[in-house]
Nucleic acid binder design. Structure first.
Length: 475
RNA sequence: CGAGGAGUAGCGCAGUUUGGUAGCGCGCUUGGUUCGGGACCAAGAGGUCGUGGGUUCAAAUCCCGUCUCCUCGACCA
């Protein structure tokens, strides 16, 4: 017991030191390690398996929506970046540039992609000729690099993994519709795969993507009430089509520019999941993305028949489509309990001589830490338990988010709202000056605008509100 | 870049005030006993104390320089 307390104390207190808790957990559960280059992370197998599950689930949704995968180069000629004025200005401070290769200086520097609008725009310019080529909808899974000043594993790293989808449509209406559809796809994914509620909506001009006409985002609420942007979709209008000559001959014979949009989610989602669901014992992983959904811990494993029974059970569960393994290492059962709880495995099954004799198994669910007895080998009951955990995790997080969204009609109310770890719902006149003032006064930014535009006056200047905005401190 | 803090074994730290044999816990290796909430016994392996210089008979410890990392701010998926 004393040892256990010493162990637990190795993770920072989730209530009082949330950022440190986060860092401790991702390192101690072996999701990541720091890379030799500052700001980079090494994703270890346990962490990467989460990403693989996210990829698989996301890909299935993309394919169902008619999006295909492709791959574009890592290095982008500098001249591509400068073709769209706002884009280059937005990304210039954080791009890494290759100036030398093959033992000599390059004639034109190459940018390590911070995002691929430009190089994909270049290729789309070649590929699109006719209205029959549209819509063109591709996605790529890749790494990108943004040289950030301060970094944190998963949440902000110099290099990160993501998917970026890029589509071209013949009309602005279609491209805009797709932008909203992808936002809805992300929201659905977040709810059903990550068990994570999000706020979605349009971003303000100040917060939008460099070069976009409109940016939409989804924001997740972390344990400490701060917001994490966990996915964005962008409507580009004809900005990139014009910069890269993405033109087609329409049905009426006229030469027209296409309308483009893009969307992306990154390994940041993993950080979002950790910070949304975790508790004082460590990770709590949503069953759909957990690398292991069930871990079987044998009790008195040297006794005749115990390990045999766990392996039979393991096979039964695996055949039922459950990601499962038996921990038959020679650590003590208590050690295994704590280890797998810290690692967030949704369900643990304890199986010892007593259970085997009685034809039972003891199931422990990580989200509530409750134990229930199940019939030995009942895979359907385990699946039902996993499914129940998923919905319970979502409902809990949703309830927490809802009760921490508070209204404000003055700056003081807004400040006390975010100080209390809340999202603040408030009116906004639409002026940049007021948005800046809110940031200065309360260190809170406009996360997304609410579709229900019902707050009457601007929280800052008191004039008639044009939008209702969720303000929060952000990671 | 502004403000704080830290560099000693794989990890976490003590030792520095007052210079004198390199320490502790966890982890690791081997063997044995254990196993229903981080077990126990025994025997081991592992460190030019971030780095360069200086003072001294003697430096982890004192002096000067330098590098790196972490936390908090300004920028961001």
């Amino acid at each position: 017991m004393a040892k256990n307390e010493q162990f637990v104390s190795q993770i920072a207190d989730i209530e009082t030191d949330f950022p440190q808790w986060y860092t401790d957990v991702v390192l101690k559960t072996k999701l990541v390690d720091y890379g030799p280059v500052k700001g980079t992370m090494v994703i270890r197998p346990y962490g990467y398996a989460i990403w693989e599950n996210i990829q698989r689930e996301m890909d299935a949704r993309f394919k169902a929506a008619g999006v295909e995968n492709a791959y574009f180069p890592l290095l982008i000629p500098m001249s591509f970046m400068t073709k769209e004025a706002e884009h280059v200005e937005g990304f210039a401070p954080e791009v890494a540039v290759v100036t030398h290769a093959g033992g000599g200086k390059l004639e034109e520097p190459l940018v390590v992609r911070p995002t691929s609008e430009t190089i994909i725009g270049h290729m789309y310019g070649k590929w699109v000729e006719s209205w029959r080529d549209l819509p063109l909808r591709l996605n790529q899974w890749c790494n990108v690099m943004r040289w950030e000043k301060t970094t944190r594993p998963f949440l902000r790293t110099s290099e990160f993994l993501w998917q970026e989808g890029h589509s071209v449509y013949a009309t602005g209406e279609e491209a805009e519709e797709e932008t909203l559809k992808m936002l809805a796809l992300y929201e659905d994914f977040s709810k059903n795969v990550l068990c994570m509620p999000v706020l979605t909506g349009r971003k303000t001009e100040k917060e939008k993507f460099a070069g976009a006409v409109a940016t939409y985002g989804m924001e997740a609420m972390m344990h400490d009430g701060k917001s994490l942007q966990s996915g964005t979709t962008h409507y580009m209008g004809q900005n990139f089509a014009k910069a890269f000559g993405v033109q087609f001959t329409d049905k009426d014979g006229a030469l027209k520019y296409g309308y483009t949009m893009s969307y992306g989610v990154s390994t940041r989602l993993i950080g979002a999941v950790i910070m949304t669901h975790g508790d004082a014992r460590g990770l709590i992983l949503p069953p759909p993305v957990a690398p292991l959904q069930v871990v079987i811990v044998p009790i008195a494993q040297k006794k005749e028949g115990v390990l045999d029974a766990t392996h039979v059970l393991e096979r039964t569960l695996r055949e039922a489509g459950i990601r499962v393994k038996t921990d038959d290492s020679d650590n003590s059962p208590g050690w295994k309990f704590n280890e797998w709880e810290m690692k967030g495995v949704p369900v643990r099954i304890e199986l010892g001589p007593r259970d085997i004799e009685g034809g039972k198994m003891l199931a422990f669910r990580r989200d509530t830490c409750e134990k229930t007895e199940l019939a030995l080998g009942d895979a359907e009951a385990v699946k039902a338990l996993l499914s129940d955990i998923s919905s319970a995790m979502y409902e809990r997080a949703l309830a927490r988010m809802r009760e921490r969204i508070v209204p404000a009609s003055t700056l003081e109310e807004l400040l006390s709202g975010v100080n209390g770890g809340n999202f603040v719902r408030a009116g906004w006149c639409g002026e940049r000056a007021c948005e800046d003032r809110v940031k200065e006064f309360a260190q809170a930014t406009a996360r997304v605008m609410d579709g229900n535009n019902d707050m009457p006056v601007c929280v800052c200047c008191g004039k008639k509100a044009q939008h209702t905005v969720f303000f929060a401190r952000a990671y």
